[in-house]
Write a protein that binds this DNA or RNA. Structure first.
Lengths: 132, 132
DNA sequence: AATAAAATCACCCGAAAGTATGAATGAAAG
DNA sequence: CTTTCATTCATACTTTCGGGTGATTTTATT
């Protein structure tokens, strides 16, 4: 909801800045074609970003095929797998397209649910519990 | 070598202090039996400590039964096993009766030899290489 | 005895991991 | 339409890891 409003505002700002650029300097220095191209590119990029952002949400990289019979959520299971693969939190974050803090939260929850303190213990226990 | 000298020096100091205690005050305040007992206890403790220390050295907690066919040393293999068990460096150090820094050195060497950067990667690779 | 390898320990420093707390959002279920 | 849960993210803080370097001491080998 609020995200859409934010998008609207950004759009507005884009238009505004374009207007300013247009009537002040640009139009007297470059041709109308260049100006149009610029506008096109900018809005193309913005549209791309918007589209990717919205689609990427809630599609949530489906890493696992078989959901485990544990109290771990899907996402936590994803993280656990990458963790067992020797990936660092940063690498996991990059691979799943989320922030480092998010991964930290996930790992914390994983540790709680598996009742361990460290990632090495987590993978060890997960292996023993047959969920890997 | 030097450790033995140190032991000798400690022994000497013990004798010296005992002599001082002996002829100055103790002998006129407590009975000869008590004095003898005291000396006995002190030397017993010292002997115990010395024995334990020397035996404990180079007997090197025999954790592994089958030496792996890798370039890892015995000690490194010990550390690797505990590492795979989810132990922290501190815990490993305590279990092997060595300092934390020593374990750090071992882990560094393990990482080098296994060509990895993290402990999770180390256990993963070790598992793949059949050395765990 | 000399040399080499293994094991021990120390110090520093930056990066990574982990803990705690709070919060916003979307999805699902009641 | 709330309530619940999963997911996302942030900030702040503490602890642990890992890299680099250098050193001493054992143990083994020649």
């Amino acid at each position: 909801m609020k995200k859409l409003v934010l998008y609207g505002v950004v759009m507005g700002l884009l238009f505004l800045s374009l207007e300013i650029l247009n009537f002040k300097t640009l139009v007297r220095q470059v041709s109308m074609e260049v100006y149009g191209a610029l506008v096109g590119v900018i809005f193309l990029v913005f549209g791309l970003w918007l589209g990717v952002t919205m689609v990427q949400k809630r599609q949530s990289t489906p890493l696992n095929v078989k959901p485990p019979e544990t109290n771990l959520s899907e996402r936590e299971y994803d993280v656990l797998q990458l963790m067992a693969d020797g990936k660092s939190n940063k690498e996991i974050a990059e691979q799943l397209f989320v922030s480092l803090n998010t991964i930290k939260t996930h790992t914390s929850n994983i540790f709680s649910k598996l009742d361990v303190q460290r990632r090495t213990q987590a993978v060890q226990k997960a292996r023993k519990l047959e969920i890997l």
